[in-house]
Amino acid sequence: MDSNPPFLHRYGALLHNSSKIRNSLNDQRGEIVGECELPLLDLKNLTSDNEGERRVCVGEIAKAASEWGFFQVLNHGISHELLEEMRREQVKMFEMPFEKKLSCRLLNDSYRWGTPTATSVKEFSWSEAFHIPLSKISENGWCFGEEFNSLREVMEKFAAAMSELARLLAGVLVENLGQSRQFFEENCNESTCFLRLNRYPACSLSPEIFGFVPHTDSDFLTILHQDQVGGLQLMKDSTWVAVKPNPDALIVNIGDLFQAWSNNVYKSVEHKVVVNPNVERYSIAYFMCPSYDSIIGSCKEPSLYKKFTFGQYRQQVQQDVKMSGIKVGLPRFLI
């Protein structure tokens, strides 16, 4: 049985004509100017006994978050062995037959594929994923069959390591603004954050099909582990640029909530994934989120944004996508 989702069968009306695809996306894609080297930051200096070295590292992280919204980190504390172990478990899940992934309710029924709300190609993502609340990983009844006995243990270790790194980076960014870490310590923990395991099957239909549509992340902070296939692109100076994979680094990006909380000091940058015609791509994303009733207010006045809860923000995003196919995001909450 085929492991790939039946994209053409389900979305044939959107995908059958490549020339129409090209025309409909012509205004969306922009010109790609080669590959970019994201700021590459060595986190070992964050624990240095030399206060000067530590302050320089904090400044570099804050500068990247302000100017790029994206950066890469080395010496992040997550072992290569754990990353590879998580990757093997991820591949094993996605290699299951599609019907089994769809019906077995693996990982608390967290399997997603395609874009059910899409009404045009520009709203469609050629990808599949398991979107998993960290709070569900250790619950009984979440897995399927003997073949995934090791999955829970690996995911628990991986989520704990990612959570520790996210708290470290968020703390640094908060510290740079001269603010207390209390909000993040009280509202962002393992019970409110998510893992998303992504697979982007090869797609030779058209180079204009998105693996994941242009978007910004709706969290505080995202940490991404990707393979070496490439495909991640971000908006820099009004131009799409491709991110060159680095096998030794994790990618970090600012989300909408951090942009609002920092009063636009840190930037949540639009990004997307493009498909590869010959090779599948894998990635794993950790999303640092608060509880749904957490009030997101700017850390200083005058604030550029109205106060809102994370739950209200998610609801507005979902409503906008349902009505127009497009995420509006933070502009909805500007004063």
Rank of each mutant, 00 (worst) to 15 (best):
L8T: 11
L14Y: 12
L15G: 03
K20W: 04
R22C: 12
E31K: 11
E35W: 07
N45M: 11
N45P: 05
E51G: 03
G52Y: 07
W68F: 13
N75P: 13
H76N: 12
G77F: 04
S79H: 06
H80R: 14
E81Q: 13
V91Y: 02
M93I: 15
F94S: 02
S103R: 14
Y111W: 03
P116V: 05
A118Q: 07
A118T: 03
V121G: 00
F124W: 02
S125D: 00
L134I: 10
I137A: 10
S138M: 09
E146K: 14
N149K: 15
V154S: 11
M155R: 07
E156A: 10
K157G: 10
K157N: 15
A159W: 00
A160Y: 05
R167E: 12
F183A: 11
E186W: 10
T192G: 08
C193L: 02
F194P: 02
L197T: 10
R199E: 01
A202R: 13
E208D: 15
G211R: 00
F212D: 00
V213A: 03
V213L: 03
S218F: 10
L221T: 01
Q228Y: 01
Q228P: 01
V229L: 09
L234K: 00
L234A: 06
K236R: 11
S238R: 12
V241E: 02
V243Q: 00
P247W: 13
L250I: 08
I251L: 14
I251H: 04
N253K: 03
D256K: 04
D256S: 08
Q259R: 04
W261T: 02
N264E: 13
S268T: 09
V273D: 00
V274T: 09
V279K: 15
I284M: 12
C299T: 09
P302F: 14
S303Q: 09
L304F: 04
Y313E: 03
Q315L: 14
D320H: 14
V321C: 08
K322S: 14
S324N: 12
G325K: 02
G325D: 02
I326V: 13
R332M: 06
R332A: 12
